Computed example of a mutant assay.
Amino acid sequence: MEASLTSSFFMIFSGAAVLASIALYTRQPLLIAYIALGAIIGPYGTGWVTDLKLLAEIAEFGIIFLLFLLGLDMQPKSLYSTLKKATVVALLSSLAFAAIGFGLAYSFGFTPTESLIIGAAMMFSSTIIGIKLLPTTALHHRYTGELMVGLLLLQDIIAIFVLLILFSMSQGEFSAANLLRTLVALPALIAIAFAVVRFVLLPMLTKFDRFHEYIFLLAIGWCLGMSEAAHSLGLSAEIGAFLAGISLATSPISQYIAINLKPLRDFFLILFFFSLGARFDLSVLADILVSAILLAALILILKPIIFRYLIHSMSETKKLAWDLGFRMGQISEFSLLIAYVAAEMLLIGREASHLIQATAIISFVVSSYIVVFNYPSPIGISDKLRRD
């Protein structure tokens, strides 16, 4: 019998607390504890938690709030300058990673369509891991954080186009109308967001800034409202949330909102990583283990190297280039979304879908270890590396 939502949450968060305690004592990244818990008590483990559809939908809120908070931390003028510099790096690196994924998948006998989709899933780096392991001070005040966010945002935009193409392929042919709709909808949504903030939200925040509960409510409403607006225009809810944050970033109250929403974001991110581990069907692992290990190894080795040379070509220092390369040396939660959408539309088989998922899990875990043991992060293994 399927467990109730209350009992499911009890098992998830109690189990997460236990494994997280072990992870902290042994200096392990916390996300590993959450993924492991999903594999242990999910439907392919002990089966204590089975309502993955609901948990996956709830976990999506974690990504939405994460991108909203990222937007709050970015000044529009600074972001625009960063995007201009990062565009070439994002495009060239995405093409290189797609070629790596396609070549290995095709050599293991996957169909051309499956190989293309696997290659597309390799193009992106994880926003969640990249930002979670970046010190807050670096995100707020240092160029490292700005450049990383710029690259991740450009990758997210590319991911939206990939998803649009997948939806078009499900209808048997490519639909240029969907892409044209996106090109028109995005700038329109940006203009609307800044207009609403300037003429509606900021006057209201100024008038009622003494009521903290009201500020909290208005911020969540604005974030979710922009997410829904973006989704209705054919964009992604995540892009809408990011625009909601950027449009509020010029407000003096933006940092107050960001600080107060972090606990809510972390709540949903625990569910996100749990659902990642719980969704993985261990019975398929034997069929794709070798290819997943090889693909993950290629990504973990070549992504930092490619990013290092491309970022260094922008006149950045080698130290900064290596730092960003290793922090972005995994694949993304968008890669998982591509796998789920493509499998649901029968564009790829079960093995191809699980190859992407297994590569994501391996790259998440190993990349987290590399960063935690070598670069400053909130969970660094020593006082020298531990920075909030």
Rank of each mutant, 00 (worst) to 15 (best):
A159T: 03
I160C: 13
F161Y: 11
F161R: 01
V162S: 02
L163K: 04
L163M: 10
S168P: 05
S168V: 06
M169Y: 01
M169R: 00
M169K: 04
G172M: 13
E173Y: 05
E173I: 07
E173L: 08
F174G: 10
A176N: 08
A176V: 04
N178F: 06
L179M: 14
L180W: 10
L180Y: 13
R181W: 00
T182E: 02
L183V: 10
V184H: 05
V184D: 05
A185K: 01
A185H: 05
L186C: 10
L186Q: 05
L186D: 03
P187M: 06
P187Q: 03
A188K: 03
L189M: 13
A191F: 13
I192A: 14
A193H: 04
F194S: 10
A195S: 13
V197R: 09
V197G: 02
F199C: 06
F199H: 12
V200C: 10
L201Q: 07
L202M: 12
L202A: 14
M204G: 13
M204R: 14
L205D: 01
T206L: 14
T206C: 11
K207M: 09
K207G: 00
K207F: 06
F208M: 11
F208G: 10
R210G: 04
R210N: 12
F211E: 15
H212F: 00
H212D: 06
Y214R: 12
F216P: 03
F216Q: 09
L217C: 11
L218A: 11
I220R: 02
I220G: 01
I220C: 12
G221I: 08
G221H: 11
G221V: 11
W222D: 04
C223H: 08
M226E: 12
M226W: 10
S227W: 04
A229C: 12
A229D: 10
